[in-house]
């Protein structure tokens, strides 16, 4: 203790320099968490899970009291929706079979391959006001690793920026540091979907760098393009809400309304692009060794 007392100024300066250097060198890196981070996560994440569950329990209770009358009607509606979707699903699986046979005949690879998925719960959200980062309750022990893609309700949510042993950190597409290469389904126009702080709180994002003579318009479906090495092609992002021309007059940008309701997001599907989750986890172990 006496050592700390007499050298406290020097210790503070060394610590400050260390943090400065560390923050410069680790900026923007994605990867898996180190031992210290994983240990802290091991302690903190169960508590966060408990706390989130308590708050969502009360949220549900209040919600139920408010909407009790609507529940019955909603239930009926959902049942008929399920029936419709089941029928659709059967039809689509037949089409899928046919597609596989035909593409085998033509000897081309499947464009929209079936990816392995795991469900995960959001247990904590960003404590600051600037960004949109969240923590999920699955980590490297469940085969999760950085740069895996997150979806919910059929739309893109974001990607994993860091995976610890029991937790993983995700960045949503609304975060102003996120960018996703995207494409309009109808016209095939390419662009980059970026987060924007002025739109983040309304749950919207922006598609930038669209060619000025692109025929993109309101209501167009936007999906991830084949240009990205993180996001697999064909995941739907959202619908165009508005198209505007940039001030330079050379490019357009569009305001995108994502399919996902980011305010009430709690369960997430993690997609592993390279095959099965178990393969991924064994790869991770090899890397650690």
């Amino acid at each position: 203790m006496k050592f700390f007392e007499s050298y406290k100024k020097q210790i503070l300066i060394v610590l400050a320099i260390f943090l400065l250097v560390a923050s410069v060198f680790t900026a923007g890196k994605t990867g898996n968490a180190n031992f210290i981070e994983s240990t802290l996560g091991f302690i903190v994440t169960p508590l966060q899970k408990v706390s989130t569950n308590i708050s969502s329990f009360f949220d549900d209770k209040f919600h139920n009291i408010k909407n009790q009358s609507d529940l019955k009607a909603e239930n009926e509606e959902l049942k008929s929706e399920i029936e419709r979707l089941e029928r659709e699903n059967k039809r689509l699986s037949l089409l899928d079979e046919e597609n596989k046979k035909l593409s085998a005949l033509l000897e081309i690879a499947q464009k929209y391959a079936a990816y392995d998925t795991t469900a995960s719960q959001i247990i904590a959200k960003d404590p600051g006001n600037w960004y949109n980062i969240f923590v999920m309750d699955k980590g490297t022990k469940d085969g999760i690793s950085a740069n895996m893609v997150l979806t919910a309700e059929g739309g893109l949510v974001g990607k994993i920026t860091e995976a610890g042993y029991t937790y993983s950190k995700g960045m949503s597409i609304l975060d102003s540091r996120s960018s996703v290469s995207a494409m309009s389904v109808r016209t095939g126009d390419l662009g980059i979907v970026k987060g924007d702080y002025t739109l983040m709180n309304d749950g919207l994002c922006k598609m930038e760098y669209i060619n000025s003579d692109a025929e993109i318009m309101e209501g167009d479906e936007i999906i991830t393009s084949h240009l990205s090495d993180v996001y697999p092609p064909g995941i739907s992002i959202g619908v165009v809400k508005e198209v505007k021309t940039d001030s330079n007059g050379l490019t357009k940008y569009a305001i995108i309304e994502p399919h996902v309701d980011f305010k009430h997001l709690d369960t997430i599907l993690i997609i592993s692009e390279n095959g099965k989750m178990s393969d991924v986890s064994s790869q991770n172990e090899e890397v650690e060794d």
Binding site: L19, S23, T26, K29, G41, Y131, K169
Partner: peptide, 18 residues
């Protein structure tokens, strides 16, 4: 702590808080 769970670089919030 904030850096570990919600930051993208290690040390930024640490330095700022300090």
């Amino acid at each position: 702590l904030t850096d570990i769970f919600f930051g993208t670089s290690f040390g930024f919030y640490g330095l700022l808080g300090m």
